[in-house]
């Protein structure tokens, strides 16, 4: 049975299909992206759109290379990466802890969950001004904005995940001799993991929105700052290059996370 299963998955992933066929399929699939890119190159070049409004892709690529070479991509990229990692990382640790405890201890649940549920729809971007008030114009306010914005999605997904863990799993573990604390670590948290990880994926997207928005507003460094600085200065080809970099950054962060998620949740099939 397990052998037929692996065969099927292998076939679905295409490893039994010849390389040339797979290449052709990838090409057909990716063609729309190539068409868009070609349109982007041609339209401003032939004067269909003003190159001021849409610099041709080649100009954007050249500008990107320039940004890479003069080190502005690296230095601003590093500070953006640090903000997202610190803010999101903190919210994951605090959020899982708080969410699981809420689900596990009824009195904590009774006090905290109505608050969480009413604050959850809070438009996260509105937190940025308060954080600037509190932490000034440095990285602190950006990290705090990301932390505060990502916290509730992680808390709520951990809470829902932990509450959704099948009662019979908890009882089975207890019947097999696990203490309540062990059950928390060995049953509740793994059982809640699919939902926790989905919540973190959500938080990852929010962290990028907040990172970029905060960097627009708190201008000193970061990719968001770089984009708006270039835009204000009228260097549009470089601005487009910056926007594409941030977009790609967000895209790949999500893809890498998705791979991690699939790996960690392999048991779900």
């Amino acid at each position: 049975m397990s052998r037929t299963l692996t065969l099927e998955t292998a076939a679905r992933r295409g490893s039994l299909i010849p390389l040339s066929t797979r290449l052709a399929r990838a090409l057909i699939r990716g063609l729309p992206l190539i068409l868009v890119a070609a349109g982007w190159q041609i339209a401003p070049s032939v004067g269909l759109i003003s190159p001021e409004a849409l610099p041709p892709l080649s100009a954007v690529a050249t500008a990107w290379w320039g940004l890479l070479m003069d080190g502005s991509l690296a230095s601003n990229g590093v500070s953006s990466l640090w903000e997202v990692t610190a803010g999101l990382g903190l919210s994951i640790v605090v959020g899982i802890g708080a969410g699981v405890l809420m689900a596990w201890y009824a009195p904590v649940d009774a006090i905290v969950s109505p608050l969480m549920k009413s604050l959850y729809p809070m438009p996260k971007s509105a937190l940025i001004p308060v954080m600037i008030l509190w932490f000034g114009l440095g990285a602190g306010s950006k990290i705090a904005s990301i932390f505060a914005g990502c916290l509730l999605p992680v808390v709520l997904s951990s809470y829902n995940g932990a509450r959704g863990v099948d009662q019979s799993l908890v009882w089975s573990a207890m019947g097999l001799g696990a203490s309540r604390r062990r059950v928390l670590w060995e049953v509740v948290i793994p059982g809640a993991l699919p939902e926790i990880m989905a919540g973190i994926r959500n938080a990852l997207a929010i962290s990028f929105i907040l990172m970029v928005a905060a960097e627009f507003l708190v201008g000193q460094n970061g990719l968001g700052y770089l984009i708006s600085f270039l835009g204000d200065g009228g260097v549009y080809d470089a601005m487009f290059a910056g926007v594409l970099t941030v977009a790609a950054f967000g895209f790949f962060a999500d893809r890498v996370y998705l791979l991690l998620m699939q790996r960690m949740l392999r048991w779900r099939e």
Binding site: I28, G30, P32, L33, V36, A205, A253
Partner: peptide
């Protein structure tokens, strides 16, 4: 589907706020 599938799957996880300066320009 053929045309939009790759565009949507590329666009969905992108931080769209980053495009704000472009919208301001246009």
């Amino acid at each position: 589907r053929w045309f939009f599938d790759p565009l949507v799957s590329a666009g969905l996880p992108m931080p769209k706020v980053a495009f704000l300066p472009i919208f301001m320009l246009w």
